[in-house]
C-alpha cells in the first residue's frame, strides 16, 4: 500500500510563451506508515509536488499510482482518492467557514456521502484526536485561538479518515506550545492509525524530530532523499538548496571548526549533548 510517483514532471502554462518548468522529472514513493518530510526553499516546487499526490495537479509527464492504480487513468475515482490521501493546505484555518466547529469538521465526511449520523461520529473522533474536547463542538470556529483553529481545520481532513495525510507547513505561525501539541498529536496519529504523513516544513528542528525520510527539493529538482541522519550530514548540499542545519547539529559543526574532536551526527539536543560530553571525557 503506497503512493508512487514515477518520473513525474510539471510544466506551468505548457504550450504558451509563459511556459515554465515547476518540477523536473522525479520519482518518489510514500509508504503509508512513514513520515516523509519535503523540504526546500520557497519556489523549489514543494507545493506543486504535494498537490500532485492527491490528484489536484496533473503531472505533465509521468504517472502516479495509488495502491498500484494509475490515478489519472480515465475511470479512476479521484474524488475517492482525495478522501484517502487528505491534503491540509497552508494556513488551513482561513478555510473554516461553518457556524460551529462540529459542522465545519463534518463537511468533508458529508461530502463523501456519509449519513449525518456517521459524519458526526467521525467528526467527533477527529476532533478528540487533535485535542478539541466536546465543549468546542458548538463554538464558532472564528472564536478559537490560532492553534485551535489550525487543529479544527486538520480535524476536517482527518474526519475523512485518510490513509495518507499531507500537510503543507502545518506549524507555520503557531506559538511554541501550539507547535509542540500539534507535532505530538501527528506522531500519535501515525502510531495508532498506521497513517502515512507527508509534511512540508521550513523548520529543520521539526523535520529532524518527525521524519523517517526526507526529500530535498531545489529549483524544481529532487536534490536528495534519505533518512534525517543521511540528509543532515550533507551541510553544503543543504545550504545550496537554501536550507540550514537544525540548531543542535549546527553547534557541533561550529565546534568541529574550532578544532574540538566531536562527531557532528546529531539530530536532537540530547544527542548533541552526548557528542559534546564524549569530547570532554
Amino acid at each position: 500500500m503506497s503512493l508512487l510517483l514515477q518520473n513525474v514532471s510539471y510544466v506551468y502554462e505548457q504550450g504558451t510563451p509563459m511556459e515554465n518548468t515547476g518540477l523536473h522529472p522525479l520519482s518518489l514513493e510514500v509508504k503509508d506508515d512513514e513520515v516523509l518530510a519535503v523540504i526546500g526553499a520557497t519556489g523549489s516546487g514543494k507545493s506543486t509536488l504535494i498537490q500532485m499526490m492527491n490528484g489536484l495537479n496533473k503531472p505533465s509527464t509521468g504517472n502516479i499510482y495509488y495502491n498500484g492504480e494509475d490515478i489519472f487513468a480515465e475511470k479512476y475515482d479521484r474524488r475517492r482518492l482525495r478522501s484517502q490521501v487528505g491534503l491540509v493546505f497552508q494556513y488551513p484555518e482561513y478555510q473554516l467557514f461553518e457556524e460551529t466547529v462540529l459542522k465545519d469538521v463534518c463537511f468533508g465526511p458529508k461530502n463523501q456521502g456519509l449519513s449525518e449520523e456517521e459524519a458526526i461520529g467521525r467528526a467527533r473522533r477527529a476532533m478528540r484526536r487533535v485535542g478539541l474536547t466536546e465543549d468546542y463542538e458548538e463554538r464558532s470556529p472564528f472564536d478559537l485561538s490560532g492553534g485551535e483553529k489550525r487543529r479544527a481545520a486538520i480535524a476536517g481532513v482527518l474526519a475523512m479518515e485518510p490513509k495518507i495525510l499531507i500537510l503543507d507547513e502545518p506549524t507555520a505561525g503557531l506559538d511554541p506550545e501550539g507547535r509542540e501539541e500539534l507535532l505530538t498529536e501527528l506522531l500519535a496519529l501515525r502510531r495508532e492509525r498506521q497513517m502515512g504523513i507527508v509534511m512540508v516544513s521550513h523548520s529543520m528542528e521539526d523535520v529532524a524530530r518527525m521524519a523517517d525520510r526526507i526529500a530535498v527539493l531545489s529549483h524544481g529538482k529532487l536534490l536528495m532523499q534519505g533518512t534525517p541522519r543521511e540528509i543532515f550530514r550533507e551541510e553544503s548540499g543543504l545550504l545550496e538548496a537554501g536550507l540550514a542545519l537544525p540548531a543542535a547539529c549546527h553547534i557541533l559543526h561550529l565546534l568541529k571548526e574550532k578544532g574540538l574532536p566531536v562527531g557532528t551526527d546529531a539530530l536532537s539536543v540530547e544527542e548533541a549533548k552526548e557528542k559534546i560530553l564524549a569530547a570532554f571525557s
Partner: peptide, 18 residues
C-alpha cells in the same frame, strides 16, 4: 507561558547539568 528556550539554551542547560 507557552514558550520555550532556544535549542542552543536547552543544549547549554543540559551540558551544565552534566
Amino acid at each position: 507561558l507557552g514558550l520555550q528556550v532556544p535549542q542552543t539554551t536547552a543544549l547549554a542547560d543540559a551540558l551544565r547539568e552534566s
